[in-house]
Design a protein around this nucleic acid. Structure first.
Lengths: 363, 363
DNA sequence: CTGAAAGCGCTTACAG
DNA sequence: CTGAAAGCGCTTACAG
């Protein structure tokens, strides 16, 4: 489908300032490179050099041009620049179906980095279970000639998508819980370490009988979080029996089911680590239905620090990931020309936030 | 700040197909209007007419051109079109600080309408408490030459912003709980009616002593929701005493405070209507701390049907607004050329979703 | 350090 | 119904 041409609803309101004898005419509408060139007495090529921070401009010339640009409120037209550069000043954010808060925080972060940069953020949710979703992303990138894209879980874990982007020469940054790509294209959230911290915390409280509700194995984060937790316990001499581990689906209902399963065990766990907050909320429901108090009878730890976490009662102990910082950093990497020199992938480590859903076990 | 020019990371991989004697050469990279014109033996102006659905093209010519475009996978370059049209194929979503789920649903809805339209969605959060936020929106619109913008509460309620957009000739659609503008620029969510439904529901259950926690008065939605609820009760003969109404701030903590205030009254309310789910979650906390059971001792009704609502325990009775539909409709109105003919503003009415937090009062 | 010419891929204004 | 010319606001490639 081709979009129909925009239909203006009103005519331009700005009228041209009348030219005077001793000063060159000011531009009527928005100033262009030609106006700047003419009024500052240089060629448009020189103005272009100033725009693009070329060193090949005499400092005085540069100052003069910059002053005029500022005076006229001139900003170069991104469409014209894009046409000439064969590339746009748009960054794409591609994602599958994470939680709303995660998406929004990522957007805020990316926009932090893009502010006043002349770049804008274009969002592209997609359904990675569809065969043709990569085609959809490819068309999006090609059609808009995107400067680059940010990929967040789960699409960030898809090697075929990354390969398709490389093939069309589109730069990208993948946010994932392990390094899946060359350093300049990677931003690692160390979920494994954070989950180990949760394990250490529960062990240090005195918990010995512990349940784990993991995410679905097809998410790399689920594996990292689960393994990190188990490794943390193991390092402190606690081996979790396999039937104290339940594979959930990162959904509320699977959290309920997981807790029903675990709380029926004997001995009953005194603590449950749920690999996201939604499932932790499900644990609350199951525990309360059984008349178990939190944290009196059961300690619960979640992961994500979603808005939910602080609005449950009791407030949920959980792991906070600096998603906005991650989004900011990802966008920076896309804009930064020095990033490709990176040797080690950048990373961030989420950390535990202790609230009211966890305490020493009774007895 | 001027963005530095994009730096390509790799060279083009596509090689030109070798021209043969009996067929014109196929374009090397992405096909352009010139390729289509040359290969189909018409002028580029005619191809342009086909692109823009001009009726002034012979049907046969149109078919021939369309077939070739399809064969070569040609899509017009939005930047080039934009430069010539002096307008981009971008839609802006401008918002202040609503909940994450609301933003994301609105984005999904808008993207539903933009899919395969050639338009893309650019997001623009802003801080409407800052003096210069309107300037920021203006620059955003002007710089990107946006086709139009969608405004959602609370920025949609700002007359100065709307005036600024009219002044620069930018089309917009305002999503708000009352008609604030001409019909083609308005999409009304009838929060008042939905809140009246909540009042009817509680009255029909038998509640007579009822508490109300409103949102902050500076939000039009807060006024509509609060007044709609009070009007609904009044229509059924229940006059709420002023001290059974608490003005909250749409935040969890204000919900807690409001509930503390209302639950200390005598007689104690048997039901509380909180004007958003976050505050309703706060009511849960306050009730549970006092040892009051929900819904046994207290019925609670929220507003928004956020993810939180179904993840609380017990699941929250609340009002569901079809936000995704609203986003879709708003984007459609922006793309649709017939919309300006609208006499009455379009509207949607949210509806009550009964879950487990409400029942007949005891005794 | 600076500039005149040609071009990016489209459209408008005009002519037929 | 169709097209040749000029232009949108920038940049690249070349020359000095």
């Amino acid at each position: 489908m081709t979009p129909t041409p925009p239909r203006p609803r009103r005519s331009r309101s700005a009228a041209a300032a009348p030219p005077t004898a001793d000063a060159p005419a000011l531009p009527a509408g928005k100033a262009t490179i030609n106006d700047i060139a003419r009024l500052s007495g240089v060629s448009k090529k020189t103005v272009s050099r100033v725009i693009n921070n070329s060193p090949l401009v005499h400092p005085e010339t540069r100052e003069k041009v910059l002053a005029l640009m500022k005076q006229l409120g001139y900003t170069p037209d991104p469409q014209a620049r894009g046409l000439a550069f064969r590339r746009s000043f748009l960054i794409g954010l591609v994602y599958d179906n994470p939680t709303a808060q995660y998406i929004v925080n990522m957007q805020y972060g990316a926009l932090d980095a893009l502010r006043d940069s002349g770049y804008e953020l274009v969002v592209h949710p997609c359904d990675s279970t569809r065969e043709d979703y990569i085609d959809g992303v490819r068309r999006f990138v090609l059609q808009q000639k995107l400067h680059g894209v940010i990929l967040i879980p789960r699409v960030s874990e898809d090697e075929q998508l990354a390969a398709a982007l490389r093939e069309i020469g589109c730069r990208y940054v993948r946010v994932a819980s392990i390094p899946l790509d060359a350093a300049p294209n990677m931003l690692v959230t160390r979920d494994r370490l954070a989950s180990t911290e949760a394990a250490n915390y529960l062990e240090s409280l005195g918990h010995r009988t512990i349940g784990l509700i993991t995410g679905p194995r097809r998410y790399r984060s689920a594996i990292e979080r689960g393994e990190g937790f188990l490794a943390g316990l193991a390092a402190r001499g606690i081996e979790l029996a396999p039937d104290y581990v339940y594979e959930g689906g990162y959904t509320f209902d699977s959290g309920v089911a997981g807790a029903e399963f675990l709380l029926a065990k004997s001995p009953r766990p005194t603590a449950i680590f749920a690999c996201n907050d939604e499932m932790a909320a499900g644990v609350y429901k199951a525990a309360m239905r059984r008349g178990l108090g939190i944290p009196g009878d059961l300690s619960v730890v979640g992961y994500d620090d979603s808005p939910l976490a602080s609005q449950l009662w009791p407030a949920l102990t959980t792991i906070h990931s600096p998603t906005r910082d991650v989004g900011r950093e990802a966008a920076r990497m896309l804009l930064d020309d020095h990033a490709p020199a990176l040797e080690q992938p950048r990373d961030v480590t989420p950390h535990l936030v202790v609230r009211d859903s966890s305490q020493r076990p009774k007895g």
